[in-house]
Simulated scan of single mutants.
Amino acid sequence: MKLVSIAAVASALAHASAYLITGDTVNCRAGPGTNYEVKRTYSKGIDVTITCQTPGTSVEGHSIWDKTSDGCYVSDLYVETGSDGYVVGKCGTTACVAPKSNQATVDLIAEFEGFEPTIYTDAAGYPTVGYGHLCKDSTCSDLKYSIPLSQADGKKLLADDMTRFERCITAMTHATVNLNQYGALISWSFNMGCGAAETSSLIQRLNNGEDVDTVLSEELPRWVYAGGQVLPGLVRRRNAEIALARTPMDDTALPAC
């Protein structure tokens, strides 16, 4: 637990939710995570007023982030609250609803994932069906579609599986992107994982306000390696994602709220 000085306790009592910054130069970000844009910085020893707290990216084991009266977020690690837990109320829980990917995105992912209408065991030993859907048991009893799968049902199942990637991309991306650019991000994260996406320079550059098409064209081709070797299949997939992103589209996907 972080220790709090007598002076800090007195200050907290006097100012209700004012707490000392303990880090030398602490970034206050647009959201509760290290991938968000830096809005301002705080110097060590100044008081900040915490309006609410919320879960976010873990920083040295601390996953609580403090929203300050300046409207930005700092890791609670760098704020002398006297506790590793919540000391004020939690921030509102209303979350952005992740947009559904368009059919062009579903089709792109389907093309590169490959289709199997019947249950098979993947390389890791998991029962799998359709476009790489991992089943809960050997009979795929969790499916709402009959086996053997039709390709149409397989794509519906794929669209269901894409939901968690839509959620994570929506949560971490604060740039304005259209549905086709969004689709490129979904395909990339579906292939590489949400964790890799969140810590990537691609997302960082988008959140810093760089041109979306430029960022995708420069960053996606970097994601073509496996075991230190360039894989032709990944090269083709990244090129297809870039082509999708460049296809004109008026419908905005992000920000979702």
Rank of each mutant, 00 (worst) to 15 (best):
M1W: 07
L3Q: 14
S11T: 10
S17L: 03
A18E: 12
L20T: 13
L20S: 14
L20P: 14
D24L: 08
K39W: 06
T41S: 13
G45T: 06
D47R: 14
V48Q: 02
E60P: 04
I64N: 14
W65F: 06
D76H: 12
C91R: 11
C91G: 13
T93Y: 07
A95V: 12
V97D: 14
A98W: 06
K100P: 02
K100N: 14
S101N: 10
V106R: 00
F112L: 01
E113A: 01
T118Q: 09
G125M: 08
G130M: 03
G130A: 02
Y131T: 02
T139G: 14
K144E: 12
L149D: 09
A152H: 06
D161S: 04
F165Y: 15
E166S: 11
M172Q: 08
H174G: 10
A184S: 08
I186N: 02
I186P: 00
W188F: 15
S189P: 04
M192I: 14
M192W: 11
G193C: 11
A197R: 03
E198W: 03
I203M: 11
N207A: 06
N208W: 00
D211S: 14
Y225C: 05
A226S: 15
V230Y: 02
G233N: 02
A245P: 13
T247E: 05
A253I: 01
P255K: 11
